[in-house]
Write a protein that binds this DNA or RNA. Sequence first.
DNA 1: ATTTTTCTTGTAAACGCTTCCATAACTGAA
DNA 2: TTCAGTTATGGAAGCGTTTACAAGAAAAAT
Lengths: 344, 344
Amino acid sequence: MDFDKQMNSRITIVDVAKQAGVSFGTVSRVINNDVHVKKETRERVVETMERLGFVANRQARSLAGGKSNSIGVLVPDLGTGYIGEIIRGIDAELSLTDLDLILYTTHRTASKETNYVTNLATGMVDGLLLVLPRSPADFIGNLTQSKFPFVLIDHQGAGRDCPSVGAANWQGGYNATEYLTNLGHTRIGFITGSMDLGCAVDRLDGYRSALRTYHIPDAPELIYEGDFFQPDGYSGAQAMLDLPEPPTAIFASNDVMAMGVMDAVRNRGLRVPDDVSVVGFDDIPQASLVRPALTTINQPLEKMGRVATQMLLDLLKHPEKKADRIELPTHLIVRDSCKSPRLD
Amino acid sequence: MDFDKQMNSRITIVDVAKQAGVSFGTVSRVINNDVHVKKETRERVVETMERLGFVANRQARSLAGGKSNSIGVLVPDLGTGYIGEIIRGIDAELSLTDLDLILYTTHRTASKETNYVTNLATGMVDGLLLVLPRSPADFIGNLTQSKFPFVLIDHQGAGRDCPSVGAANWQGGYNATEYLTNLGHTRIGFITGSMDLGCAVDRLDGYRSALRTYHIPDAPELIYEGDFFQPDGYSGAQAMLDLPEPPTAIFASNDVMAMGVMDAVRNRGLRVPDDVSVVGFDDIPQASLVRPALTTINQPLEKMGRVATQMLLDLLKHPEKKADRIELPTHLIVRDSCKSPRLD
DNA sequence: ATTTTTCTTGTAAACGCTTCCATAACTGAA
DNA sequence: TTCAGTTATGGAAGCGTTTACAAGAAAAAT
């Protein structure tokens, strides 16, 4: 493993072959673990490769072999810790293989997404992991049709019939709401996420279903349309607390907005959870750090990345396999931000 | 841009050439913006490429052209939001070019690091961005020697003479401590980070220097060796508050530990900042979210990623350029976790 | 000992592009 | 008109592999 040797003059299989006294074909076979190599020959070649510090040229292998040995991960951006968690899972799983991870960000430009996918599917990567919370784009159809291996992550909507992994958003919305009703709340505010995202819709549906189950009448004024960012949590809470009959609990579609809610509550001199209970969604790291610690729905992001990667690897191995959708369970994490409503 | 055409039968420059009635050499020239192409010819070729949905094969270009059109980013892991921020900056900058970002995680295995670097530098990528907070490994020397373009991020220590970007950790440590002394504190506890990391050492040094400047006597019992994780913040604070003469302020080497400190303070029935002031380091997103909002030192992680990338791009363009180290300033962010000590 | 069969190895032809060299097609000046 | 001087284009050689295919060597069967 002499570093310099590798750096200066690139060592190729031909060099190795010459040194080992075999043909380059044999060296190639050794690299690819071909069975048809005598044991001693293989050992000699391996030894030579190590001595020379040979590293196979990835590009050449791709070109000749028709596969790139890397998988592409397409994400909208890296802004939220949310995506980072998913990538972490992907990386963890990928590091068990010899596949490279090529990261692409679309920065929320739909045109860029299509463009990338086209490029990628044209030989740059062997498979694709798509984190695209937005509504499904055309290219998903194309991808499916062309049988290019890919898995969707946290993507609901039209893509139900292609390989994807998501979280049980509906269930989470339901469970959180159920928890609040069980505590005795009947005026439960809800702050939605961006409604163009499937997950936001599902969470809202879960909330509504729970209310129905527990015979709590619809109250449109208790639903505020947010966008997943903190300011909307704040303003949503303000709006609701201004109501003649304000909610005793507020369920925000994600933790960041829930923190906005907490701020708004406090800024009116009210207390969490004594005056207003707050529930979030996601269970981001800071959920356990804020005071009071936030009761929330845990979404297994890292695991979603892992599972999606496993699915893709499986797809790569067995291209004929049918697509399926895996929905990972969400869990209610009870902390300190909820309480039974005061009886006044 | 017909998707299907691309997916099914790969379109090559030869196909384009045939359709456009030119030789593939000319097509190649068009792709590479070679000056020696008649305007009309170029237009015709471009039109044909678009019509056919031609996408150049990256591997082939790399193989033939001798460069990979991608840069490698080597990080220890993705566990902390910290790295995510840096990658975000890298990505932002890279998306202005047509370079791909290949992400490698070493998962804290030194052997893996060396291995990767060797591989990468052997033609897999055109340049390397290394986020390696640990003490410098041999390969940095090799990299330098072989003139492979690379930039170190947030890495102090022996690598002072190679291209790198970091944050003013010493200054941050100094400023935070100075701020506390200015508030009137004289018993200031410090919880260090992992001392095998250059940044942790620098922060401690900054703290010490500030104390010296303000003639505050050394108090070894007020320095607790932590590891950058929350539990150590907690236990460090506990240990110090048990002291006969406990600190009136605690400065933790990063925000996560500072939150541990806050917890510990509260768990003893004391209040932040009334009884104990707390300062963190990093300014992670949740720093502004916790209550009381954490006063801390802002470290421009995203910008570090950006700057490092710019340096690398520059290095790629002008390989002869001298290495330099850029230190990005840190800033004190005053929030609500500090107060003058009570006068008892 | 001879002929199969089975292993093992060598070789040539891709893979899709860049790049250099040669040639062809234009310039404009003599 | 002719000859250099440009500029535009075609084509060949290679980049470092993989992957047939062919051939040689060894082992097994006759």
